[in-house]
């Protein structure tokens, strides 16, 4: 990885876009990357559209300006796409990953998007199935690792497991559910043929 990879997460306040951005960066750092993760801050409360960002690089990152042209955009809540231009600043060779049961082709049609790569994964369904609740941000991490190829999958799983075990020491079922959700999303995320 020569340069800096920039990522943008779209979600609604309370959905965990910030947490996902932090989790991903934390994991990337454990795997040797230089990272930045930061949310967009405003007076918004639960439910409002929010964004969070990641920067990853093999070299120290010094710049501290905002991210306007992310290579990867993740959408935690597909209903956002009706009101928020999630593709803003997305370059022609960028990637869009959407949490939805729909196919990438359907999303492309909905967005009227000419270029960029589109991927979909039903992270909410996976989350409900594996974790028991609709918290799509963890499975989306699996999809992101698959699509971006930025991190080594096995190492990423191992690292996340260690971190979750630390956080949920007395709730092993949560750790297991989350890891399975990440793995499932990794396997199931699909792009256009």
């Amino acid at each position: 990885m020569e340069k800096i990879v920039e990522i943008r997460w779209h979600g609604r306040g309370g959905q965990g876009a910030k947490t996902a951005a932090l989790l991903f960066a934390d994991c990337a750092m454990s795997l040797g990357k230089y990272i930045q993760a930061f949310p967009e801050y405003g007076p918004e409360r639960m439910g409002a559209p929010v964004q969070a960002f990641d920067r990853l690089s093999d070299h120290p990152i010094t710049l501290h300006c905002g991210i306007t042209n992310p290579q990867i955009v993740l959408v935690l809540d597909p209903t956002l796409m009706a009101t928020v231009d999630v593709t803003q600043g997305l370059p022609a060779d960028g990637s869009l990953i959407v949490n939805t049961s729909k196919s990438p082709q359907e999303i492309r049609k909905e967005l009227g998007l000419k270029n960029a790569k589109i991927y979909t994964v039903d992270a909410s369904a996976i989350s409900k199935d594996k974790i028991g609740r609709d918290i799509p941000n963890t499975p989306m991490l699996g999809a992101l690792v698959k699509v971006s190829g930025l991190l080594d999958y096995d190492q990423m799983i191992k690292d996340t497991e260690v971190k979750l075990e630390k956080k949920f020491a007395h709730k092993p079922e949560i750790v297991k559910g989350n890891i399975e959700a990440i793995k499932t999303a990794y396997d199931k995320v699909k792009g256009e043929k």
């Binding site: 932090l22 930045q36 993760a37 930061f38 949310p39 990152i61 501290h64």
Partner: peptide, 12 residues
């Protein structure tokens, strides 16, 4: 530190 830019930015 600079508010949000650094205070809320996770780094190594």
């Amino acid at each position: 530190t600079d508010g949000f830019i650094i205070s809320h930015c996770m780094e190594r």
